[in-house]
Design a protein around this nucleic acid. Structure first.
Lengths: 239, 239
DNA sequence: CGAAGCATTGAAGTGCGTCAACAATCGTGG
DNA sequence: CCACGATTGTTGACGCACTTCAATGCTTCG
């Protein structure tokens, strides 16, 4: 199950069997977590990080007045809270959006890996930086794109991220979020998120039913989104 | 001039004179850069990072249709593009908002520092993660806060960040951005940014003239912003 | 089978955008 | 040191994308 993480990693760097062993051994425990659970609460003291091996998770930030923003979605292969390794407590919650399988990596093991295999340390730093790039692109969406464009953009991004770990079909992917959760990703109300989906449907760009997203016209979707994938750093050469 | 960076660093970790020497030596060149200049263009190949020693810079992302979003502001003491060290090219531009003094740190020097002084490496990783936390908070602002609340939030954040490096007065700070630039930080049009400032003024919360921001009622401003500073990780204990 | 959550629709309101004009300030050259 | 064009700040009228409120069916699941 950890192979999905190794797949993602191998897209960036080639690793020795010794390094692979070190990564496999860093996971001390594999847990099943139910959907709609809070894996980590903001402010909580941390001494391990969580490797998402299956399912979907999200980083959420709440205002006292009740509004919620999802600042990042995580899919299989992602480290959900690698930044907890240096921050030691998070400024956001980490929640499950579906049933998940999680690999627990104690920070002391991470420390050993980084010290013993600097190239892996470099990779994990790199991957934290790609996370940050995704959040910047979200800020661009929230600040400048229309509701339609934002939603189209999210669908395009997820297609590439899922495809990179072999979790996409040629024409779409499983999409477990409710419309409420989707609206929290996009800074919209549920009502308007619903109307926006319908408009994308009406234009023959996507279909969304039974938690399955079908992309009918990917070029068209990318056009509306003004999508440019370079921020995902997917073309990075292997070193 | 690099002392402002050391000040910021010393708020987090205590450093030996040897470590201080290594940091000082990592800066191979100090440059003056004019205001409204593009220091780094998105996509450009990088082999050094820039330490902002004086002035203000911003990370900006543009859409093909012309809209611009500022995804982060940088003030004295910040590494503007530390993430370039692992990413090697950026997904955004880095521009000057005022005349700036910049310390150039070649990536090879950074590499040496990180390998020779793991605690400094940890700190720089930590500080990149705080950057990301600031961007997450921006996403929360753009997605969920009103124009007034967003602007109030930005003013509160900058007060704490500037105060941390001794660049704030008790009642405010120098604020070199034009209203256009401010509006690009907040995902607003210039016109509405202008009206929002006026409303904050009218309520007796801030004054902004001659590039000087005066905070008349910090508690009130924080209230409107629903401001909670924990995401800045300013209280982190020194190790 | 019933309750709770989820998706959908309609009607009405509003925060912010757009367009357009003008005033104030700044920078630069003569 | 003044002249003058360019940038920045300000204001008004109007429009619209998105929100709000409310109701109704649909699905899910204990």
């Amino acid at each position: 199950m950890i192979s999905v993480h190794l797949t993602k990693l191998r897209r960036r760097i080639s690793i020795s069997s010794e390094e692979e062993r070190a990564i496999r051994d860093s996971v001390t425990e594999t847990r099943r977590v139910a959907a709609d659970d809070i894996l980590i609460r903001a402010g909580q003291e941390l001494n391990s990080s969580n490797l998402l091996l299956d399912g979907w998770m999200a980083r959420t930030k709440d205002l006292p007045s009740g509004e919620r923003q999802v600042t990042e979605l995580h899919v299989a292969g992602d480290f959900a809270d690698l930044h907890g390794f240096t921050l030691k407590r998070l400024d956001h919650d980490v929640v499950t959006l579906s049933e998940c399988t999680v690999g627990v990596v104690p920070h002391e093991r991470l420390k050993e890996i980084i010290e013993s295999y600097p190239r892996l340390g470099q990779y994990y730093w790199f991957s934290a930086n790609v996370d940050a790039a995704i959040t910047r692109e979200l800020a661009l969406s929230l600040g400048q794109r229309s509701a339609m464009s934002r939603m189209a953009h999210l669908f395009c991004e997820l297609y590439l991220r899922l495809d990179a770990v072999g979790q996409a079909r040629p024409d779409g992917y499983a999409f477990p979020l409710t419309q409420r959760e989707l609206s929290e990703c996009l800074g919209l109300t549920v009502v308007h998120a619903n109307r926006t989906i319908q408009e994308l449907r009406r234009r023959g760009l996507v279909e969304l039913e039974n938690r399955q997203l079908t992309i009918l016209d990917r070029r068209g979707l990318e056009g509306i989104a003004e999508f440019d994938s370079t921020y995902l750093y997917l073309d990075r050469v292997r070193a």
